[in-house]
Design a protein around this nucleic acid. Structure first.
Lengths: 113, 113
DNA sequence: TCCTTAGTTCAAAATTCGTTGAACTATTGA
DNA sequence: TCAATAGTTCAACGAATTTTGAACTAAGGA
């Protein structure tokens, strides 16, 4: 129930890379980056997999320190931990998100700019 | 015997991240980056694992397009494919190598600058 | 030619990962 | 209170990954 997040200094580079080395999670992060500022709930990602499956991938992202998950009523709001990632691994998130721009899975959700 | 390498356009972001999301391979890349220009053979990395195990990890790095392996007599010379990586994923390698600078495994080999 | 050095390949074992459905919790709204 | 919505947890399963030792290849030097 408590949704544990690692502290910034507990975020490990190898783990961040391993967690992002998966098509589904990379697509989720690409989508979050492209819509930074907009509140995202788990349901936004149903194109990427089943509800159960997304719960698994979103937990991996949270546990790696890549995303923040806030409980809001019956849903959860998911966002990138951009500040923490940028200060811990300068330039990493930007280079990944840029390179992920036209990944096949992401194309499915290209309804924005 | 032939040591196949992927073409630059065959290098996949998710695969690069997955392959680097491993302590041993990340340490190898960190060491290669720190000694760019110096010819490296597999034996340089024996501190990171057994001969067999290194052969496995070095093959993964080569197959992902991260390193180049050239046969030279009885040994192989390993180098980063920096140009290919930089043009395909700008900034990625630098941010990873910078962030990997003081990774525990790498400390073992800190005999250089 | 024979030995050594450098590294690969193979098969087996151990581990970890991704996906699934069924059952569950918690919040909201009627 | 009752039902619907949003998401989690659990156990199970197959697939992929890592690690290991034993056997192998290929080049170089004595």
């Amino acid at each position: 129930m408590s949704l544990p997040h690692p502290n910034p200094d507990q975020i490990s580079l190898a783990n961040v890379l391993a967690v992002l080395g998966d098509q589904t999670r990379l697509a989720i992060v690409g989508y979050l980056a492209r819509n930074e500022g907009v509140a995202m709930s788990c349901g936004q990602f149903l194109d990427f997999g089943s509800k159960t499956n997304l719960s698994y991938h979103l937990a991996k992202l949270r546990e790696a320190g890549i995303t923040k998950t806030e409980v809001s009523g019956t849903s959860r709001l998911i966002s990138l931990r951009r500040g923490d990632l940028d200060s811990r691994f300068p330039g990493l998130l930007d280079s990944i998100v840029t390179a992920a721009r036209d990944l096949p899975l992401l194309e499915r959700l290209k309804d924005d700019g």
